[in-house]
């Protein structure tokens, strides 16, 4: 119950929410490849249009999209700025040693568009898929590794537990912080040593409680006779449906269009 939105899953019942998590994971990768291969302004417009259809389809509020983009904005602007001034080519405008070239403008514009489209596209995976479905999907996609001796089930279980406990621990941090603040702790000391001293009263109880939770969880898991030799079945089996096929064909079409655009 705090403002930290880990995983950012926004529950809903749209067509995109209902897609198989494997479809969404694979399509996310495919989306990244498609965007990297896009190299004309027109086709960037096309992919952006495609993304806006997904946005409407997934019924995600624009504000959430903005929140997922905001943290990467400084990095995008920073890198594109250096691209802008360090690219050689036809000079458009110069100021002492700084020169802005036509190529530089294009390169940095494309960089901004690429990163934005990729970040927004990828955030749809986490917006529309709960963390448990994502791990289910990953487990199923990585299942072939089982033959190589990797305990995919155990890894999936570990990942699920780790993800499951992020909100719990962040809640715990908040609680500990509140408790220490009530004893007059202030976390506004700007000096490094002061900061370090301020962290100890939070970190020690946090680690202690993480271990306590781990022991409790281990006990609970053992009481349910968990071990890797048993082949478990899933309550919600993953099945590709017609909509998954539709989604794949949409992405396939986009991909072909972009490829044609690139080599024409």
């Amino acid at each position: 119950m705090n403002d930290v939105m880990i995983g950012q899953y926004i529950p809903g019942s749209s067509k995109i929410h209902q897609l198989d998590p494997r479809t969404k994971i694979l399509l996310t990768f495919w989306w990244i490849i498609t965007i990297i291969l896009t190299n004309r302004l027109f086709y960037f417009g096309l992919t952006a249009l495609f993304l806006s259809f997904i946005l409407i389809g997934a019924q995600i509020p624009i504000i959430s999209i903005w929140k997922s983009v905001k943290p990467v904005l400084p990095i995008i602007l920073f890198t594109s700025f250096f691209n802008l001034i360090y690219t050689q080519g036809t000079v458009l405008w110069s100021f002492y040693f700084l020169a802005i070239t036509q190529e530089g403008v294009q390169l940095s514009l494309f960089l901004i568009l690429r990163i934005l489209l990729i970040v927004i596209g990828c955030s749809f995976l986490t917006f529309t898929t709960s963390l448990t479905s994502i791990t289910d999907g990953l487990e199923s996609l990585l299942a072939p590794l089982q033959k190589l001796g990797v305990h995919v089930n155990d890894v999936a279980m570990m990942v699920t537990i780790a993800i499951r406990f992020i909100p719990t621990l962040s809640e715990e941090i908040q609680k500990i912080k509140d408790a220490q603040k009530s004893r007059g702790a202030s976390f506004s000391d700007q000096k490094f040593l002061g900061k370090l001293r301020g962290v100890i009263p939070i970190l020690v109880p946090l680690i202690y409680s993480a271990f306590r939770r781990a022991y409790e969880l281990t006990m609970a898991i053992e009481c349910r006779c968990y071990n890797h030799e048993i082949k478990r079945t899933k309550m919600n089996q993953l099945v590709f449906k017609r909509n998954d096929l539709v989604a794949f064909s949409f992405f396939c079409t986009l991909f072909i269009v972009v490829i044609i655009g690139r080599f024409n």
């Binding site: 509140d178 408790a179 202030s186 020690v204 109880p205």
Partner: peptide, 20 residues
């Protein structure tokens, strides 16, 4: 606010979890 917190002390649920 810091002075307020010395005047209004709160002991939270399971305070033993906050000992360090």
């Amino acid at each position: 606010l810091r002075a307020l917190r010395f005047a209004v002390g709160i002991s939270f649920q399971y305070p033993e979890h906050q000992i360090f």
